[in-house]
Design a protein around this nucleic acid. Structure first.
Lengths: 112, 112
DNA sequence: CGATTCCATCGACAAACGTCGATCTTTTGA
DNA sequence: TCAAAAGATCGACGTTTGTCGATGGAATCG
């Protein structure tokens, strides 16, 4: 079953209208970039499954990466609004942001 | 309403188990990277809404980017398995891959 | 054949990114 | 008061990415 292709004339292009609002595209891209890294995606997966907020030193022990790198990745997730942090003493506890909008929640539901 | 934080002892970290299979993480990251660009996300949005396959020259006219750059982005979407191409004469017609798995379809449903 | 059109590929370049060691701040506790 | 621990930030480094102009290949048409 083969659908017919649209007819064309040489030298004539009809640009399609861009359907997505620019602000929405930018927001989505920012979110996608925050998630498009193996370490960060794993972090989100761990946090999504955890009933308790998790100390960042636990992530440092779990991944074979240096402490600054773990901190860097968690900072990216923080900047993207995906996680919240609570400091207590010398520890920093992270958890999934509980106020994520519906689209973001749906995305995480699919991904992790 | 404040949930209590887990108790901790200095110098003792308990790494959480990594919940996501490595192959799944890699596949997801590849998909996310393919989508994490404004131009490519717009392209997917256009293709998702189009009943007809679209000629790449139409995209070249729609975006303020050079022809090689448009081709480069479409190639990335092709490598990620998101779009299919049909060549006819001098034209290359692109459409959304009709055999996307359920997770990917769900992702696109949320995003574009 | 020769010119034209579409499109992919190549090479180059700047910007962004992931990673690390070193350093600094804050908090704890002896 | 001082040492140790957690974690953020800084500076540097190599890699990846987005972009372009130039080139090459295939199809079309006079």
């Amino acid at each position: 079953m083969k659908s017919t292709l649209p007819e064309r004339v040489k030298g004539v292009c009809s640009p399609p209208s861009i359907p997505l609002p620019l602000t929405r595209v930018d927001a989505s891209v920012e979110l996608l970039k925050a998630l498009a890294d193996p370490t960060r995606l794993q972090m989100i997966g761990v946090l999504k499954r955890s009933a308790q907020p998790l100390c960042i030193c636990d992530f440092t022990a779990a991944f074979e990466l240096s402490q600054p790198t773990i901190s860097h990745h968690m900072g990216k997730l923080r900047d993207a609004g995906l996680v919240d942090v609570t400091k207590a003493g010398i520890w920093a506890y992270y958890r999934l942001n509980s106020h994520l909008d519906a689209k973001t929640r749906a995305l995480l539901e699919v991904l992790v």
